[in-house]
């Protein structure tokens, strides 16, 4: 029994536009004092009111390949509270900046599940780890949209879980959708959902380049 070669299957999948490789993203942040109010609000707005928000605790490491003119970023993420789930290797492309009228950031994103040897693999391949952190928080969903409210913790030298220290006194709120290319209508839905959260948190496009170089 012969199966279609896997690589050509993937190519056809990509061509027929069913593999979600674009991420639409809106980000914001909220202070520790008011995060409870935000969680309460999200709980009411999002799906599955009965089951409550889903907690998560992830450890993310960011690797860079420096041999190219534009450094390539690869992120490796694993769930600390679900050790049996596979590790995730994520490639995030540069956001498309051209259109100012677009409601959300659009960037290409490829998520690959892999075994735990991925860190060794990448190090042998020549990538270097830039930084790592732990994110702990809650996840919600509404239709296709995923909303995460998480706090970023700095990893300590001894890498024990109790001695993590938070990076700031606020929570990062992200609203994202993974969709195939060309489905821009979802961006409008995301924008209207973000409006509903407006007085508590402002979800908006964040210009990373400006953040990196900082205001003069």
């Amino acid at each position: 029994m012969m199966a279609q070669p896997l690589s050509s299957a993937i190519d056809t999948a990509f061509k027929s536009n069913i593999v979600p490789d674009q991420e639409y993203l809106l980000q914001g942040s909220v202070l520790d004092k008011v995060v409870e109010v935000l969680l309460h609000r999200l709980r009411g707005l999002c799906d599955n009111v009965d089951s409550g928000p889903e907690p998560f605790q992830d450890h993310e490491m960011c690797f860079t390949i420096r041999t190219t003119p534009t450094p390539l970023n690869l992120r490796v993420r694993r769930a600390l509270d679900h050790q049996e789930m596979p590790w995730q290797l994520r490639y995030i492309g540069q956001p498309e900046y051209g259109d100012k009228m677009r409601p959300t950031i659009i960037r290409s994103s490829i998520d690959i599940g892999c075994s735990a040897t991925v860190v060794e693999f990448l190090t042998e391949l020549g990538c270097r780890m830039e930084f790592e952190y732990i994110a702990r928080g809650y996840m919600f969903r509404k239709g296709r949209m995923k909303i995460t409210v998480s706090k970023v913790f700095k990893m300590n030298q001894n890498k024990s879980q109790e001695s993590m220290e938070p990076l700031s006194e606020s929570y990062l709120v992200e609203l994202s959708v993974l969709a195939p290319r060309g489905q821009d209508a979802i961006a409008e839905d995301m924008r209207s959902f973000a409006e509903q959260l407006r007085p508590l948190v402002n979800l908006d496009k964040v210009d990373f380049k400006r953040l990196v170089h900082g205001p003069p």
Binding site: A79, C114, S115, R141, L178
Partner: peptide
């Protein structure tokens, strides 16, 4: 829900595990 949280919404836990295992 996907664990870790950056994964796509949708595939069941079994399906997520199917590739790497």
């Amino acid at each position: 829900f996907p664990h870790p949280s950056s994964g796509p919404l949708g595939p069941s836990k079994q399906r997520c595990l199917a590739g790497p295992t």
